[in-house]
Amino acid sequence: MRPELTRLARIEQHLLQPNPPSPAESAAWQTECLLDPELQADAEAQQQLYQGLQLAGRRQLRRELQGIHHRLYGPGAAGWLHAATHGLRSLLRRSFGRVRE
């Protein structure tokens, strides 16, 4: 990877690690920040990118859910009937499923 991309990856590793950093990792990051004065500011900017992506993803998921709703319950969809009779069909399956076979 290009050095610029490797730097993004290093910052990502620091920001998105699943567990709190160990003392050794914290010390290593502090040292890198001393050697590279822009590292901390770049990490803060990258954190804002992740927050923006979180918002964008949530909006996309909301759009997908609206699409599902429309397919199931929108004009012309038979989904409402399917959903409304779901309980009845489950009951029938439980009661008669064995007999059918």
Partner: peptide, 9 residues
Amino acid sequence: PAEAAESVL
């Protein structure tokens, strides 16, 4: 949502 994150959108 933080203003900065909103602007990233």
